[in-house]
Design a binder for these strands. Sequence first.
DNA 1: CTTGACCTTGCCATGATGGGAAGCTCTATC
DNA 2: GATAGAGCTTCCCATCATGGCAAGGTCAAG
Lengths: 150, 150
Amino acid sequence: MNIGEASAASGVSAKMIRYYEQIELIPSATRTEAGYRVYGDRDVETLRFIRRARDLGFSVEEMGTLLALWRDKERESSEVKQIALGHIAEIERRIRELEGMARTLRHLASHCHGDHRPDCPILDDLAANTPDPAQARTHKMPQRRKSGVQ
Amino acid sequence: MNIGEASAASGVSAKMIRYYEQIELIPSATRTEAGYRVYGDRDVETLRFIRRARDLGFSVEEMGTLLALWRDKERESSEVKQIALGHIAEIERRIRELEGMARTLRHLASHCHGDHRPDCPILDDLAANTPDPAQARTHKMPQRRKSGVQ
DNA sequence: CTTGACCTTGCCATGATGGGAAGCTCTATC
DNA sequence: GATAGAGCTTCCCATCATGGCAAGGTCAAG
């Protein structure tokens, strides 16, 4: 099976299959004399596993761990469960973050006329709100020495 | 005001301020003779606007539009509302996507012993599930000519 | 004058993915 | 057997927003 066929059979693009090989998420495929990658049913199974895990939002790193556990017949299911639970917690954190944004935006939008008049509480709010450093997102503001807003 | 002070006053890192200038989201700051960027209160206001919009999940492109509308006194609030509503819809779409993942994972995890036994429905499911091309995420699988899984 | 915090530019990295070019291979059709 | 064109190969570049590091100039306090 060529890479294109393996791609169609697994739902993972050929580009990504090569990428996964390069980062050693999957072993290097054997090659034909001409240098074409060759895949078997086992490889397609692995690629489907990856495709499914990715659709569940697992990162490539997490997929690597899951694959290793999958291949290890003696693995303990608690390890897998831990990864799944951790991932669920992360997803729920992102959901809460997005819901906070949506809540604020819905509130602002509901107070905006949405007509030809220029008054718009959305812009006013964006402009007026003093930033609260404590609720910064990915922010790591460096501390200054002379510290003081001039 | 130097860039570090403007950063502290606005909550936007110096690095990002330079980046926003480079991509022309904000106008180029005036410079001292030595080449230092100089900021005034108006600039800090703009940066705060950006910081707040970013915390609400707006992309840089959307921020550019919002900034233009903010500066345009004659703008119609309907434009702003449209952007906000579109953004809300996008956030809600992402939330639904994440909730689908969380639901599936919770279901799988609840059926996993989570102990020393190797049996794990999570891995079994990842391995066995045939991919449904219709529910692909960002997938644009290219169509093959001979189309057929060997 | 020295120290060191601050500024400058520039390059590199992230994560997962796509796009495209240049060049080789395979296969179906004439 | 020759030709066309789909498919494969590698390599490089782009995304998006952000951080890190390095080399070098500047400024202010001691």
